[in-house]
Every structure is written in structure tokens, then in C-alpha cells.
Write a protein that binds this DNA or RNA. Structure first.
Length: 902
RNA sequence: GGGCGGUUAGCUCAGUGGUAGAGCAUCGGCCUUACAAGCCGGGGGUCGCAGGUUCGAAACCUGCACCGCCCACCA
């Protein structure tokens, strides 16, 4: 049995967030609260974390992603779900290899001189040192993952899944080897998928080059943005309908700077209006030209090597870089008077998304995965509602990509990653794709079997993440219990890279969608709305934020900002506001704890009949808030859920109930006891509601409150306490109306006080005798309740000359004669009071109210409205009119009295 | 070239048919024994523009403007 940490102690003056973060997280882990048990019964909620790169450092995107996941995971755990949140990291092929290469470069080493094995060993070593960093940073945010299940995409188990998938797909003929034009990064020296190429606009030039006819009868001019590729040209194409060139189709050209002859071909793909209408065709280095070349049976010539230097096919230019070759070729053309002109021209160039180097379309033999069929099934699964995106409009993006998908180049010429399970006999070149390395060649019996050098695209293994992490291909208990997962929460930037691939792999290999819901988080931007990037130097470090504001405030802020379908724009003000909120909760808890001195543990439950108006009202508001928050979280509306808790905690519980509780806490034992119970009830439920958002603060406070609770009071922690359910306190709507009346009345008094410039002063007794008030002022409120309410307003107001002002402010019109009579008894305002400000303010507001009333009357008398509006709307309009009329009457009364007083 | 999202208070954003809301900022007044990271009060918006639908539009439709993003092989 745990001894509650806070039993019988007062809360410290301030909340020490750092101490609480360390203390509670460690305790939660030690107790195994986050461990998932596949053998437990009950409803299941499972999530796999989007595995951050092992190279990663926590950034705000992670912080947002993890905070939101933790909010829903903690909620579900408290709601009694069998919850799994599985953490892990991605080996991130290119990114990691680059990071380690960069590090080695500082010591003047490079991987080529090291050799493959030592280099890969070095990366593993690096991973041992730094790979856990990002996950530790996630822990600091409070991520309640089952940390005992941490996975890494290069783990033996996950690698086994990768191999099996590759082999199976090969056997299904969905993975194949082909020589095609692919994107090649000359710096990383690997093939890239289409998705790994970014397009950047670049100011370039359009060079107009004359290609002379072989027969010497003149020339045709082509326009190009890449003159150096002319060495690989195998044709010039024109549009078949282009009158300028119709007669030239089929003629032979002499390719300048070379000895080759090429033909003029006609193809409808050529746009006559661009450039000269004649385009040089380089099937070996341009995707368009590649396709066109295929149609016309053109030769494909590679003129570049793997580092994008000119190769042997480029004759005298061999050995030059792309850039040098361009310069020299342009100069040479010019000297031969073959350069007609140069025009400035903006166009997009493809760059490697990892290193920003301009990629080169290269002819290369690679492994490809056929996507069409798998993509169709994956798209249909979403169309059929098996998986739903939140917000829904992301489905369009998903469909758009799936419906226009190209085969996926999955091989990479890297060293860090899953090596492709393809083996070749050194003797007869026979290719085998298999789980295990064959001991000898099945064809020729040769024993020299060489594994393919290439590794797989990182996203290949990530795509298996939801089930490979659960032990697939074995049919484990985890897989049976937790797959498919309930939710995937991730950023839109990896919908194609990752979400789509998981959908395809999941359906292909498990027959099920890998997740029921996909929540797409907004993109975190800086205060100027710019994307945060290291190069801009505008990165806000979440670790700094946690240091400054506490992890709870960071989490709460991110939840509040996570409006659906929008970018998140950060500002320090928001974090400060959340910290203020945490402070507010802390102090409200201090107030409650201070007033629990000497109270029984647990508190005795008061009877229904004892509850006052204020008690019933706040309990009712609590019940509504609980229902709201649960519903909003169910819909992944994290921001509205956060706001609902915030509003209840601050503006209902603290602003009103805590204030109203002060009087009864001071009075008789029974009313103090009753009030204590309500305070504790509200605080307890509030902490539970807030715990998923602010786990550390709430756990800290709850440990103090625990002894006074009747349930779960003597053991356990908030992290595994029950989430509040829709509470029924047996309340009536009249209670709410009466309370609203009290609130509005008090606000009116305060407003008048402020307008009149009333400062603090001695406390005054209320003018209205409780008897009078109870009978006439607020019919639904009992005498004692009114006394409490009244004492609240006077306590806070501490008015001078309250005698005159209070009744004018609160008095309903039917009591006006009595007030006036009472006024005639000799109470009057001091001469120094300036009533004109109050009068004009009330008049102004009255006019506005009257205008609204007029509008409502007009609507009400509108035949169209009567005919077409539904009954509910009509009733609402009538109610509103009654309320507006009452407001106007009240203001009239106030005015009358104020004017009389002057 | 296609597609998606946005345009509401000084700022950041909620608000999917009944004459505008929050937080922050701002202004005025308060150290009132939970909280000055606080309390009370105030000011501030013809909801991007123009049409249309409707008894009624910030919201629905059409067009336009501007901002942002994604996809795409115009050399």
C-alpha cells in the first residue's frame, strides 16, 4: 500500500515542474503502468509511434505528434482500454549514412576507404551512442509508451519481416528488376524514388543551338536548358502538325561536337509553341525523352558516371563535371557559330531531398515494385471507410497519389539498410531471391554465391511497421490483440512515403488495413508563419520550451493549437498562457487543500438535499464538461477538448465556485463539510480530465488529494485512475438559469461600480434583507443560497454606498416601486458621485439591445419566417425576445433610479 | 498545368443557416489571507471582394483577388 505523498500536507507555494516531471515519469515506468498485456480482456486501443529517425533531435513536429498521441493514449488507458503505444526508431538509410559520413569526414575519413563492413559497424556503433537520444527526449514530454517494447527497423525481427515481404513480392512478380531511367543523386551515389526528389525553381537559361543537316543544306535550331546533355542526343523531335518542320521529318542531322548522326522525328508530345518547336531528344538523361525515345526506338546513351562526371561516351569532354562540361560545350558551340542565342529561363530542377544536390536522370538497373494493384486496394479501403482520415480532406491527397501511382524504385546503392535478399551465382550468373543465402547455385552447382550489394529504401521497412513491430510473420499474441491498430497520428508530409505504403503492405500481407483512423497533424511553423528549418535558424527547440514553461504547459499549448486542418503557428505568449493555467490549477488545489485541514479521510458524501444552488450548478457544469471533453477527444478535436477543460477549470470552478465556497467554508460545520466535498469532487474530476493534457501537474496534486477520495483514494496513481464518465448529479435546468441570473447580476453590479469609479472600501452589509430577496428577487433561490451569493458579490465588490447601488443594479422591474419607496426613506448618493458615465453607458447598451430586439420582432412577424423556420428556431427567437425585453426593462429601471439619484 | 487549404478583433485562431467568440496583447481600477503567472471592468470586427440561393449568410453556390502547400516529364 502506498503512503500518499501529500497526505495531511499543504501544497507547496509553487509547482516545481522539473522535479515533478522526473519523479512521476520514473515512478510510472517503475510501476509498469504503460506496459501492454495482450492477455488482458477488455476493449483495445493500440497505436504505433511514427518512428523518428535515429539521427533525429526532438523538434516541435515530434513534440506535437507525441503530445497528441499521449493525450489520446492516456485518455484511453484511464478509460479502461487495453492500451498499447509502441515506440521505436527508424534506421533512416540515407539520412543516417550521411550523418555518419559527415562525422567521419571531420577525421578525414570516408566510407570508401573504410570499406563496407567497417563502415556499417561504425554506423551501428554510432546508433548505440546516439540512437536513443530522440526517444529520451520523447520521454521528457511524458510519452506513455510501453517502453519495454521499443523497436528499431533494423532489429532482427523486423529485418526478418522485410526479407519475407521482399521474397514474397518477388515470387508474386510484384517486385522485379529492370533497367530504367531513375533519379540518381551523384553525391549520395544512389538511386532515389520520385518522392525523394524535391523540385526547386531555378533561374537558368535557354540555349538555342543549331543542329546542321548532314547533307549541308542548312540547320534546325533546338532550345534546351541543359546544353551538356546534347552529347547524349539521339534525335530531334518536332510536332507532326508543325508546318515549319513537316518537310524536315526523317532528315538526318549531324550532332555538333560529335561524329554522330541523328534523325528528325515527329511526335505529338512536342509543343510547337515552346522554344523553336524543335526539341533535342536525350533518352538517357531525361524522363520525357526516355518515353519519346521508346516510342521511336531510339538509342539510349549515358554520358555521365555515378558522380555526374562526363563519361567515355562524351568523347573529348570525358572527366569534366556537369558544370564544367556545360561551360565548355557552350563555348565550343559559340566558337563554331552554332549558338544562336541565349535567353533567361526559369525552370524547375530536381534536387536530392537529403543533400540538395541536383539529381540526374540516369539509366540504371534497379529493383522495382509494381504498385498499381496494391494501390488500388489501398485506395478502395479508404473509399469503403475501413480507414478514415481526420481531417477528411486529406483523403483527396491520398487518392490523388494512389490513383496516379508509378512503380517504386526500392533499391538504394547505400550500405546502411536492409540488404536485398537477392543472390547471384558468380559462375553462371543465376539469380535467386530467397530468405536464406543459398549454399550453392541450383543451376550450375557453383558455391560462389554473391548477395546483391544494394539495400532497400528506408520506407520499405517503415511500411511494415504496424505489424512487423508486433512480431509478424509469426502469429503472435500481440498481433492478434493489437492489430489492426486503432489510430495512426502523423504529419501530412509522409502520407505518401509512409501512410500509403503501410496501407498497401498491410492489406497485402495481413489482409487488413493497418489502422482504423489516420489523424494528420498540422505543420508547426514559427511566429511568422514560416516552416521551421535549420537553415532559416528559426527552429524553436521544444527542450528549451519545456525548460522554460514546463512539459505540461508545452503539451497543453500544442493540444490547444492543434485545430484541424491548419498549420500551427507558435508564439511564446501561448506557452506563457498555458503555464499561467497550470499555475491557476495549482493554486486552486492549494485553496482546496488548505480547507481540508482536519477533514475526514475520505470525505463523507453529503446528501442530495444539502446541496446548494452553487453546488448543484458546478456539479452540473462538471458533468457537462466531462461529456464534452470525452466527445471531443473521441473525434480527435484536441483543441476544443483542451479549451473545454480550460474554461471549466478557470472560468467556472475558480472564478465562481471557489469564490462562492469561501462563505460556507467559514460557516457552520455542515455547510463547510458539504462544500469541501463538492470542492474535492470537482478538483478530483478536473484533475482526471486534465491528466492526459498535463500529466505531471495533475499527478502531483492528485497525490495530495487522494486520501480524501472515497474511490481509489488510498492507492494508485492518476496515470492509471479512471477517466470520469458522464456523471449524473440529478440536476434541473432551473438551477442553471438561477445561477446565470446570479452571475449576470453580480456582473452588472461590478460593471456599474467600475463605471462609477468606486474603489475599495469598507465592507458594507447588503441592503436587501434576505427575506425580501428570497421572496422576490430570485424566486428559485432559497434564502440561504441568496445570502451566499450576495455575500460573494459584496465580498468581491466591497462597495462604498452599496445601499443605493446594489438594488438599482439587481432589481427586477416589478420590485422597482418598493426600491423607490425605500430610496425615499432617505438613502442617497454622495454628491461627489458622477452618475452621467453610468447613465450614458446604460443608455448606449439599451439602444443596442433595443436594436437587436427590433430585429427579432421583425423576423418574428415575417411571414416567410413563420412559414419556413422550424419550431425550435421559432421558440428560440421567442425566448430571445423575452430575454431582450427583460434586459431592457432592467436597464430602464436602473436608469430611472440613477436619474432620480442625481 | 492540375489539386488542396486559407483569408473573422492589433496577434494567433475557434465558429458548417438565426445580426460575431476565445486566448494573448491593449486601456482603466484593484497587493481582496489559493493565485499579481492574479482579480474586476472597458475598448476594439460592415467575418478578403462581387454576385447568387434563402424569410434570414461569416457559414451554402458561382466568380474574382491575395497567401500557403501538394502533385505534374513543357525541352
Amino acid at each position: 500500500m502506498d503512503q500518499p505523498a501529500g497526505a495531511g500536507r499543504e501544497l507547496p507555494k509553487t509547482f516545481d515542474s522539473k522535479a515533478a516531471e522526473e519523479r512521476w515519469f520514473q515512478l510510472w515506468i517503475d510501476r509498469g503502468y504503460f506496459k501492454a498485456d495482450p492477455n488482458r480482456e477488455g476493449p483495445v486501443f493500440s497505436v504505433v509511434i511514427p518512428p523518428p529517425n535515429v539521427t533525429g533531435q526532438l523538434h516541435l513536429g515530434h513534440a506535437l505528434n507525441v503530445s497528441l498521441q499521449d493525450i489520446i493514449v492516456r485518455t484511453r488507458r484511464m478509460q479502461g482500454f487495453n492500451t498499447l503505444w509502441l515506440p521505436g526508431t527508424d534506421h533512416a538509410g540515407i539520412a543516417t549514412q550521411n550523418a555518419v559520413e559527415k562525422m567521419l569526414a571531420k577525421d578525414g575519413k570516408d566510407r570508401h576507404q573504410m570499406g563496407r563492413e567497417p563502415f556499417v559497424d561504425r554506423v551501428w556503433q554510432w546508433r548505440e551512442e546516439y540512437g536513443g537520444r530522440i526517444l529520451h527526449q520523447l520521454r521528457r514530454l511524458g510519452a506513455s509508451c510501453d517502453w519495454s517494447r521499443e523497436r528499431f527497423t533494423l532489429d532482427p525481427g523486423l529485418s526478418r519481416a522485410v526479407t519475407k515481404v521482399f521474397v514474397d513480392l518477388y515470387n508474386k512478380k510484384l517486385i522485379y528488376r529492370a533497367k530504367r531511367l531513375i533519379n540518381w543523386c551523384p553525391r549520395c551515389e544512389t538511386a532515389l524514388s520520385d518522392l525523394e526528389v524535391d523540385h526547386k525553381d531555378q533561374k537558368g537559361s535557354l540555349w538555342y543551338i543549331r543542329y546542321p543537316f548532314a547533307d549541308g543544306s542548312g540547320s534546325i535550331t533546338v532550345a534546351t536548358t541543359r546544353p551538356e546533355t546534347m552529347l547524349g542526343d539521339t534525335a530531334v523531335a518536332v510536332n507532326p502538325d508543325d508546318a515549319r518542320y513537316k518537310s524536315m521529318v526523317g532528315k538526318t542531322l549531324k550532332l555538333p561536337l560529335t561524329n554522330r548522326e541523328i534523325k528528325i522525328v515527329a511526335d505529338a508530345a512536342v509543343d510547337s509553341s515552346f522554344g523553336t518547336g524543335a526539341v533535342k531528344i536525350t533518352p538517357g538523361h531525361d524522363f520525357n525523352d526516355f518515353e519519346l525515345g521508346r516510342r521511336h526506338g531510339l538509342e539510349q546513351i549515358s554520358i555521365l558516371d555515378n558522380q555526374a562526371r562526363m563519361n567515355a561516351n562524351s568523347g573529348m569532354y570525358q572527366g569534366l563535371t556537369r558544370e564544367q562540361a556545360r561551360k565548355k560545350i557552350v563555348a565550343d558551340l559559340e566558337s563554331q557559330e552554332l549558338l544562336e542565342k541565349i535567353e533567361p529561363h526559369a525552370h524547375a530542377v530536381g534536387v536530392c531531398s537529403r543533400c540538395d544536390t541536383i539529381v540526374e536522370p540516369m539509366l540504371s538497373e534497379q529493383w522495382f515494385m509494381a504498385m498499381k494493384e496494391m494501390a488500388k486496394r489501398a485506395a478502395d479501403a479508404v473509399r469503403e471507410g475501413k480507414t478514415t482520415f481526420h481531417p477528411k480532406f486529406w483523403e483527396n491527397t491520398y487518392f490523388n497519389w494512389m490513383d496516379n501511382i508509378h512503380d517504386w524504385c526500392v533499391s538504394r546503392q547505400l550500405w546502411w539498410g536492409h540488404r536485398i535478399p537477392a543472390y547471384r551465382c558468380a559462375r553462371c550468373d543465376e539469380l535467386v531471391v530467397a530468405i536464406e543465402r543459398p549454399s550453392q547455385c541450383a543451376k550450375c552447382g557453383g558455391s560462389d554465391i554473391i548477395q546483391d550489394d544494394d539495400v532497400l529504401d528506408t520506407w520499405f521497412s517503415s511500411g511494415l511497421w504496424p505489424f512487423s513491430t508486433m512480431g509478424w510473420p509469426d502469429n503472435t499474441a500481440e498481433l492478434q490483440k493489437y492489430y489492426p491498430t486503432s489510430l495512426l497520428l502523423t504529419g501530412f508530409d509522409i502520407i505518401f512515403f509512409w501512410v500509403a505504403r503501410m496501407m498497401m503492405f498491410g492489406l497485402e500481407f495481413t489482409g487488413k488495413v493497418p489502422f482504423k483512423d489516420v489523424y494528420i497533424t498540422p505543420l508547426v511553423r514559427d511566429q511568422y508563419g514560416k516552416k521551421m528549418t535549420k537553415s532559416k535558424g528559426n527552429v524553436v527547440d521544444p527542450l528549451d520550451l519545456m525548460e522554460q514553461y514546463g512539459a505540461d504547459a508545452v503539451r497543453f499549448t500544442l493540444a490547444q493549437l492543434a485545430a484541424q486542418g491548419r498549420d500551427v503557428i507558435l508564439s511564446h505568449d501561448r506557452f506563457a498562457a498555458s503555464r499561467a493555467f497550470a499555475n491557476k490549477i495549482w493554486n486552486a488545489a492549494r485553496f482546496v487543500m488548505m480547507n481540508l485541514e482536519g477533514a475526514s479521510q475520505p470525505l463523507a458524501l453529503p446528501s442530495r438535499g444539502e446541496l446548494t444552488l452553487a453546488d448543484r450548478w458546478i456539479l452540473n457544469r462538471l458533468a457537462c464538461t466531462i461529456a464534452d471533453v470525452a466527445a471531443e477527444i473521441d473525434q480527435y478535436h484536441f483543441n476544443t477538448a483542451a479549451m473545454a477543460v480550460y474554461h471549466f477549470a478557470w472560468h467556472e470552478f475558480c472564478d465562481w465556485y471557489v469564490e462562492l465556497s469561501k462563505e460556507p467554508l467559514r460557516s457552520s460545520n455542515s455547510s463547510a463539510a458539504r462544500t469541501r466535498w463538492v470542492l474535492v469532487e470537482c478538483l478530483d474530476k478536473l484533475l482526471r480530465l486534465l491528466h492526459p493534457f498535463m500529466p505531471f501537474l495533475t499527478e502531483e496534486i492528485w497525490q495530495f488529494l487522494r486520501p480524501y477520495l472515497s474511490e481509489e483514494g488510498l492507492s494508485g496513481h492518476l496515470a492509471v485512475a479512471s477517466f470520469p464518465t458522464d456523471l449524473e448529479y440529478g440536476l434541473s435546468p432551473e438551477d442553471n438559469l438561477a445561477m446565470i441570473h446570479c452571475v449576470e447580476t453580480t456582473e452588472t453590479i461590478n460593471s456599474l461600480r467600475s463605471l462609477l469609479g468606486l474603489g475599495p472600501g469598507q465592507r458594507t452589509t447588503a441592503v436587501l434583507k434576505p427575506k425580501v430577496a428570497g421572496a422576490n428577487l430570485l424566486e428559485t433561490v432559497s434564502n440561504t443560497e441568496f445570502a451566499e451569493w450576495r455575500s460573494y458579490s459584496t465580498t468581491r465588490a466591497t462597495l462604498d454606498n452599496f445601499e443605493l447601488l446594489e438594488p438599482t443594479a439587481v432589481m427586477p422591474p416589478r420590485l422597482l416601486p418598493w426600491v423607490l419607496k425605500w430610496g425615499e426613506l432617505g438613502v442617497k448618493a454622495p454628491d461627489s458621485f458622477d452618475f452621467s458615465k453610468a447613465i450614458s453607458a446604460i443608455e448606449k447598451r439599451m439602444n443596442e439591445t433595443a436594436a437587436i430586439l427590433t430585429a427579432h420582432r421583425k423576423r418574428e412577424s415575417d411571414p416567410g419566417f413563420q412559414q419556413k423556420a422550424d419550431e425550435e428556431t421559432k421558440q428560440a427567437t421567442r425566448d430571445k425576445m423575452v430575454q431582450l425585453e427583460a434586459d431592457i426593462s432592467r436597464m430602464n429601471a436602473q436608469l430611472l433610479v440613477l436619474k432620480r439619484a442625481t
